[in-house]
């Protein structure tokens, strides 16, 4: 990036003069971002500190009651918030465990195959998100693919009902939805890895496990961090999956949040949303040196 701008400055003074003008290009997008993203977030924050009998407007008095309710009210909101984070951690870990060998498999294919396999990994991600979640109810349900297959082959006579509408199915669908990101991110860092180090370690007598833990894994940590941004954070905000496949035991913080919004409890809803937004922002700021956001998509 810096190199590029330096080149521009040195090649021609006219290109050099054009640079400040280029900055105007940022203005429309920045305006949209401020008006339709920053300002709404600010109002959301303000609403979370307002208590009002009026449905509309910012009238009312300042209060921290909504936050007190989030963090204390019989523990339900706090408990579900913690549960959501735990489930998101488990799902992210599962994505990494399942996705790592998968990325390794792709990185070890021939050049031609690599691009084909990568396209195949991304493609499902682009087709209707809602219908792909819905498809899992047709796979895991009592009359779904797995239960019908088990009965057809005479393995079971009663459908296995623990497959759907619980935390298990929720995590399966999270992994299904977000594993392409993990595979891409880890593939990208495996590609950049200096493979001669692997051979050197093996030649010096390291076992495969040692080689993996001390040579390969550290070099692919950027892929792991990227997974936190592109898997863990979106899962925290997942509403469709818990609603369609989570059942009663899979209720997450987003379900409680949407209930509040539907009940027009904007103040309390805003407080829940603001707690989530703060958590996500802190994570992003903490990871901003480890994850180069724009570089991820350049690949």
């Amino acid at each position: 990036m810096r190199a590029a701008s330096n080149v521009a400055v040195h090649i021609s003074p006219r290109v050099g003069r054009a640079i400040p003008r280029l900055l105007w290009g940022l203005l429309p997008l920045a305006t949209i971002d401020v008006v339709l993203f920053v300002i709404p977030m600010v109002f959301m924050a303000l609403f979370s500190f307002r208590f009002s009998e009026e449905l509309l407007g910012l009238v009312g008095r300042w209060t921290v009651a909504h936050y007190v309710k989030v963090f204390t009210s019989e523990g339900i909101y706090l408990r579900i918030l913690v549960k959501t984070i735990v489930i998101a951690v488990v799902a992210t870990a599962a994505c990494l465990l399942v996705g790592y060998p998968f990325a390794y498999f792709i990185a070890n294919a021939s050049r031609r195959w690599q691009s084909v396999l990568l396209t195949l990994v991304i493609m499902p991600f682009w087709t209707s998100y809602l219908l792909r979640v819905y498809a899992w109810t047709a796979i895991l349900g009592d009359r779904g693919l797995i239960n019908e297959a088990l009965r057809f082959f005479g393995v079971t006579d009663q459908p296995l009902s623990f497959l759907l509408f619980n935390v298990f199915s929720e995590i399966v669908v999270f992994v299904y939805l977000y594993i392409p990101y993990t595979v891409l991110a880890i593939y990208a860092s495996l590609e950049k890895m200096d493979r001669s180090l692997v051979l050197a370690a093996m030649d010096l007598g390291a076992t495969p496990v040692q080689t993996f833990l001390r040579i390969v894994l550290p070099q692919t940590l950027p892929g792991v961090y990227a997974s936190i941004v592109f898997v863990f954070i979106p899962i925290l905000g997942e509403y469709v999956t818990p609603t369609l496949v989570g059942g009663m035991s899979g209720v997450l913080i987003t379900n409680l949040l949407v209930n509040q919004i539907h009940a027009l409890e904007f103040g309390f809803g805003a407080a829940i949303a603001f707690v989530m937004a703060t958590f996500v922002l802190m994570l992003l700021l903490g990871l901003r040196r480890s994850v180069d956001l724009e570089r991820l998509y350049v690949a």
Binding site: L26, L29, A30, D33, L36, F37, I39, P40, M41, F43, M44, F47, L55, L56, G57, L58, V229, I233, P234, L236, G237, E238, Y239, T254, L257, V258, I261, F266, G269, A270, A273, M276, A277, V280, L281, L284, R288, L293, E294
Partner: peptide, 26 residues
Amino acid sequence: NLFLLLPIVIPGILTGIALLILFVPV
């Protein structure tokens, strides 16, 4: 950069609710 890319990193449910609060009660 981080600021401009924020809308695709922040979960959509939060963006949606923030916009709803701007559009309807505000």
